[in-house]
Nucleic acid binder design. Sequence first.
DNA 1: GATCTACTGTACCGGCGGTATGGTTTTCAC
DNA 2: GTGAAAACCATACCGCCGGTACAGTAGATC
Lengths: 217, 217
Amino acid sequence: MRKGAETRERILEIAEASVLAKGFGATSIEEVIAEAGITKSGFFYHFKDKNELARALMLRYVEENDRIFDDVFHRGRQLSDDPLQSFLITLKLLAELMGDLPNGHPGCLIATFTYQERLFDRTVRDIAAAAVRSWNGRFRDALNEIAAVYPARKGMDLDDVAIMFSCVIDGGIIMSRGLGDPRVLERQILAFRNVVKMLFAPAAPEIMQPPTAVAAE
Amino acid sequence: MRKGAETRERILEIAEASVLAKGFGATSIEEVIAEAGITKSGFFYHFKDKNELARALMLRYVEENDRIFDDVFHRGRQLSDDPLQSFLITLKLLAELMGDLPNGHPGCLIATFTYQERLFDRTVRDIAAAAVRSWNGRFRDALNEIAAVYPARKGMDLDDVAIMFSCVIDGGIIMSRGLGDPRVLERQILAFRNVVKMLFAPAAPEIMQPPTAVAAE
DNA sequence: GATCTACTGTACCGGCGGTATGGTTTTCAC
DNA sequence: GTGAAAACCATACCGCCGGTACAGTAGATC
């Protein structure tokens, strides 16, 4: 039964765009089904209510982001053996990725659902929280690896730095939208990249030459 | 006619809490008027439609935040003549302020409206954008003042650093909510404070002794 | 006593989320 | 090729909500 999955996917795609543009409450099922070319019965065949749609959207979004992070971290590690250089490359790649989006980042579902929590059952929020925690863990692991080689500047908790990256991304998306300038997000990721540089290179820049080949500048 | 302004304010207060908790779309006028103890006609006497309610909420929120920033920047300048120390104090005060909120930060209206832009006319978005720009300008001015005394680390655009603070605040609010930990926001502001420290003290910590008296640690 | 402010009360409309139920086509397994 | 399951369509209906319209009224103000 291939066609069912296709229709379901089409619904999710249309709904995601609408949710990111207007918010979940303002996304009407009737609009979605009109654009998808199906009837209301068809929609409720795939999702028993709007809550289940939210859950599916969330799962889809989390998986997609996981893939992106997998890819960009993997390529970072491929291009350098040094954990600091590798993370800096990863950040650069991520910044490029965000800068290349033609109409700017479409928005963060985590943020939209976080601001509409009372509309959903616990599961949606739990999925979001788990995903954020997992991403933060990823960043923190990368930072810990670096800290094992380069002494980190004192006074900075690496857990907080890891969370800060999530904040910069989410905040950057909001700022990009609010200010109407899609490049803000890219610049913010690069700014955070500089913070990482500062964090692990407190002394003169001579020390900072990468042990391995590839330069990330 | 004092009573009219009072009722209007009560409506705004109830509506703001509901919008931050559930999103604007899910905030029903009927709920608001039930809690305010007025009728629907009474509501539409004060606001001609939901759009005007949004605009009023936005203005109120922006003014409130302006007041907070005014206060915290003013006190920072009172407590030190050195621009770096003064800004660090301001950040510390802001962090304390956010940490002292009993149930965590109620949320950022800017973020919620940014994610529901198509629901409103231009004016609401324009108010939000103007406010964000003004706050960013404030942070940038503070950084520029510091840079005139302390040489900033190269490679970091101060405009981006200023915007980064807005990102950290908005992102921090989202993370606090999403992770269910109100202290994240406070910690993030303090983490950003460390970034500012790093930015203007690239060499050994001895250089960083404040020219004036008050220590902000 | 007239006027204005700040509402209340009632009645109504259309859109939307959601339910129910029954029918129809498409797809795949055997 | 057939039968069963999957993937829908059609129709009718409910209740909530945003919004409109309009008539009325208690209290403050002049």
